[in-house]
Amino acid sequence: MSKGARWVVLLLPLAAFLLLVGFLLRGLFSDPTELSSALVGKPVPQFSVPDLYQPVQTRTDAVLSGKPMLLNVWATWCPTCRAEHAYLNELAAQGVAIVGLNYKDDSREKAVRWLNTLGDPYTVNLFDEKGAVALEFGVYGAPETFLIDSQGQIRYRHVGDVNERVWQGELGKRYRALMAEYEGGQN
């Protein structure tokens, strides 16, 4: 074996080890609970649920198109939803369209009371009593926020609360890009 080849063989395990260390380090600092949505790039699933305020009124997936918007999955039993609520109010005041999907809440009254006391940032309120719609969206916890484009296509999913940092990050950036595209198309 030539001297060069010998060095390569000697250093190979070290290189493999460093590669493994890099891989494991990345794993150490990544959040395993954050799953990418299987629905990104797909149209919103079809559904039909009652309105949160008016049980007799039926809402369908038609409410999720027309302009770029957010679909926020929430419930009164979810503490993180309470934490993000003030920020959602703020976004709504800025003109961001947010549809609320109330997910398996304890009761309709409790959800309505929550919106009456904390403010209602949602343009439409969907009442998903059994979680059937959430299952179609692949929701695995609350809160989750989907970004939907004007064609009713799911573009992004954020798991966890929406706050200033998130809105400056991926979710907000993608929303602003979609909005710019949408407004460009309008003119």
Partner: peptide, 8 residues
């Protein structure tokens, strides 16, 4: 299930 929740 995979269509909704991914390969996970």
């Amino acid at each position: 299930m995979v269509a909704r929740y991914g390969d996970f």
